[in-house]
Each structure stands twice: as C-alpha cells, then as structure tokens.
Design a protein around this nucleic acid. Structure first.
Lengths: 214, 214
DNA sequence: AGGATTTATATAGCTTGGCTATGTATTATG
DNA sequence: CATAATACATAGCCAAGCTATATAAATCCT
C-alpha cells in the first residue's frame, strides 16, 4: 500500500520534472491545509477566520473587495459579514465617498478572536515541525517565501508564459472551507495592531486583491 | 496597503522563529490549494477527485477506509461513492471475506477521468512556476519532500513532542471542498496503472489511512 | 438638468458537501 | 444461540457557495 506517496524526496538532488514537483507540492500543501483546518475545535466556520484575517492583513475594506480577496462571490461575503457583525467582530462604517459602499472594520474583539484562533492553530501544528533540522527548516522557510510570492500574484504573467487554462471567469468549483484555517494562520506573523488606511477607491482596489480575479 | 504580507522571504537567511515560518507556510499552502481548486472548469466536486485519487493511490478500498482516508464521515463517503458510481468511475465488488463490506474499485473510465483532470490542474499551475530558477525549484522540491513526510503521519509523534491540541475525535470543522483539487493533483506523479491489493482487513486498515484519525 | 447605465450591496432560492442519528444486515462473542 | 459489535446505507439537517434579481447611489451622456 501507499504507492505514489513516497513523494520523491529521494530524488531531490536532481532537478526533477516541473510537473512532478508541482504535483508533490500541491499534494502536500493541500494536506497541510486540511490538517490545519482540523487542528482547532473552533465551531466557527473557516470563512469567518479567512475574512477576519483579510481585514487584519489589509485593513478596512468594502464588501466587494473582501469578496474578491477571499475568492468568494459578493453575496457569499455578505453572508459572512452578517455573521461577523453578529459576533461583534467587525463594524460597518460609512464610506464618505460612496454612499452605496459598506466599509468593514475589524473590531478589537475581532482582532483578539483572530489572534487567539491563530495561536491555537499554529500551536497545534508546531509539534509536527519541531523535529526538523535547521537545514530542513531553512528549506521550508525559503520555500515559503518563494511560494508566497508565486501565490500572491494573479497568474503566470511571465513574458513567455502561455496563458494555458487561465483562471476562468468568476466562481468556479465550489472550493468551500478548509482553507480558512490556512489563510488566517498565515500572513507572516502575529495579528497586526496598527490601523490601515481604508481602501476608499472602489473597485480599482481590485489590483490590491491580487489574484482574486483572472 | 498589504501589511504583514511581505512574507519574510527577505529574512530567509537567518533561521526565523518556527511560528513565523509555519505561518507563512500554511498561508502559502492554503493559497496554492485554493488556486489549484479554482484552476479547472470541471463541474465535478472536489470530493469526487479527492476520492478517485485515494483509490488510484492506495488501490481498492472499502467505504469506511475511504472515508477515513478522506477525513470525511462514513455517510458522506457513501454519498460520494454514489456519485462516482453514477458516472461509472468506480465499481463495487464484493468482499469475499465479509458480506457487509463494499470494496470500491477504480474503473478504467475513472482512471482516465482522474488523469485528465489532474493534467488540467497541473497545466494550469505550471505557468506560475516556470519563471523560477533552478535553485528555487530545487528548494521547492526539497520542501515538498519534507512536507510530504510531515503531513503523511498522524501527528507530532516525536519523542519530546508534546501532544498539544491533538486532532480531536472525529469530525471537526466542516473543512469541505477546495482541497479536492490538491489531493488529486498530488500523489507524486501520474495516475498509477498497477493494481493494488485490496485492504481486506476491516478497520485495522486504519493504520494505512494514516493521520485520518488522531 | 435628467434619464440611462453602471456599480455596490443585499436578498431570495437552490445546490451540495458534511454531519449526526438510525436502520439493517452480518460477523464476532460469550 | 442470543447479544454485541461492525459495515454500510438512509434520512434529515445545517452551512457555505453560487446565480439571479432587487435596490440605491454614483456616473455618463445628451
């Protein structure tokens, strides 16, 4: 049993086929994400944390921006926001420049809740990594950096990069939860404490949302 | 804007705090998983691919084993299996040793469907990685290997590893979809072609399911 | 100015994955 | 054998996603 799972670390010396590396990487990334999601007994949905993290990381945002950031539809984000409001974790503030918009702001309670939750996830995950050597940790560290960059852009974008199977239009697979865990747990280090300028410009802010669209 | 997001690649030379590395890693892993999940226009649910991948990777399995493998409840797996059956991607075979059991076997069509889908995902992802240097790719490769191992075990397990927040009992967060993409896309390389011994022993096979339980 | 258009959210309604609780057949036990 | 434990399947419920649509406000274009 367990066939294709000896994921090639055995071949790591020679540069393997990109496809193979990618396969391993995606597999492990997925697995890690699932484990992270499972590691807390929080009854809150991943979507909650994902959204709080976005607000914490990028500062106050409008509903639409949040939706793109989290790769969910606008109606879905509206739902999530309602939940966050009920818990007192975000506050709606009026956008002086546009009466249609709703700017969401993380509340102190929200920030605390996020910090607690994140701490829980990371603590649960830490034991798995403690046995690693310094060298291995450095490798993971570097990889994390490389990945973070790759993953924060809208796509291939490279010069000769063919636009194969570009991210379609909008919604796609359901691609629901799990995730949340990862998202919120990430973002570099701890829960930010400084305030951020609200992204007042409407959709032009889509650029900041990065890969949110295609 | 974009505060805590300059995920530390800038500090990669010095060994950073484990928590920080983990945060970045989880964040990126999650992001990658989401992108992978979004990268195909397949209308099939992630759960479908996740399950097909499990069968392809570990060979014929019973419903219960599949459930544990995929970290879903048995009833949920029953549902998924029904879908797979409708599409003709798996076949039920009787287990000679236990009339209660249902052993699921990947059909040729199922294998093909999985291969196609996986190819699509990886192809969609490839452009993002093509601009990387050989060194960077090697780093990712090594990291994938390290991660694959960490992520395939049931937990910290290390000698001095405290059992902090171990995976609780059974179901936890919903941790639904997204995932599927990753799972199926992973598993080392291509779609396996050899047959695998069906895990005839009932639940003792849980060991093979690895971290499925706590 | 003033109507037509576009944009930002919110709501409604549906689908789907997941879960718990249960039922049924089968194997294991005492 | 009768009882307990297992392996699945079903039923019923909930949550998160999505599309379609409604509403209000900002923009555009005569």
């Amino acid at each position: 049993m367990y066939y294709g799972l000896m994921s090639s670390s055995d071949l790591s010396t020679s540069r393997r086929d990109l496809h193979a590396i990618l396969g391993d990487l995606v597999f492990s990334a997925h697995r890690l994400t699932r484990i992270a999601a499972h590691s807390t007994s929080s009854t809150e949905s991943p979507a909650i944390w994902r959204t709080l993290d976005a607000l914490n990381t990028s500062g106050p945002m409008r509903t639409g921006e949040l939706a793109r950031h989290g790769r969910v539809s606008q109606p879905t984000m509206s739902k999530i926001i309602r939940l966050l409001e009920q818990r007192g974790w975000v506050a709606r503030v009026a956008d002086p420049t546009d009466a249609r918009a709703t700017v969401l702001e993380l509340s102190v309670e929200g920030r605390d809740a996020l910090a607690n939750w994140r701490e829980t996830v990371l603590t649960a995950l830490t034991p798995r990594f403690e046995a690693l050597s310094d060298e291995q940790l450095n490798t993971l560290d570097s990889a994390a950096g490389i990945l973070a960059e790759l993953v924060s852009t809208s796509g291939p974008v490279g010069p000769g990069a063919p636009e194969v199977a570009e991210l379609p239009e909008e919604g796609e697979l359901d691609e629901s939860a799990t995730s949340g865990a990862a998202d919120a747990a990430g973002s570099g280090s701890a829960v930010q404490d400084r305030e951020a300028e609200p992204a007042t410009d409407s959709d032009s802010a889509a650029s900041a949302a990065g890969e949110a669209r295609a």
